[in-house]
Design a protein around this nucleic acid. Structure first.
Length: 109
DNA sequence: GCAATGACTGGAG
DNA sequence: CCTCCAGCCATTG
């Protein structure tokens, strides 16, 4: 699949997310140059399970820090569990201190 | 090639 | 504060 260029870019950025940090779909989309295509980021993540190496999609949340994509995980609580396992506090399906844990692609490269 | 869908976003009601 | 709507772009049927 040569069309995975977009997906590949998304995976690449997501893999660069440091442990214990999170980012938003819009931030990734903007970094890819396709600002506004936040849906594509989430859509791309749809294949994160088939992508290799595996993509830490649990570190990718919506702009509110809400775990919107947890429903697409193997188990809905897996995402929160992984985040908590990395030191990210999650409450009510949303990341606490999201603004503080927010990681922007390229910002710390 | 058109229509529908989606792990989003921001604004309006 | 909560809900609904329209715009956004790439993938799929």
């Amino acid at each position: 699949m040569d069309k995975e260029n977009f997906f590949e870019k998304v995976y690449e950025v997501v893999r660069l997310i440091p442990r214990g940090r999170v980012t938003s779909y819009g931030a990734i989309a903007e970094y890819l140059g396709t600002k506004g295509s936040s849906r594509m980021v989430g859509y791309a993540m749809n294949g994160c399970g088939t992508a290799y190496p595996p993509v830490p999609a649990h570190r990718v949340v919506n702009r509110q820090g809400l775990l919107t994509g947890k429903r697409s995980f193997a188990t809905p609580h897996l995402m929160q569990q992984l985040l908590e396992s990395e030191g990210v506090e999650v409450e009510n399906d949303k990341v606490k201190n999201f603004k503080k844990l927010f990681w922007q692609p390229g910002a710390e490269l």
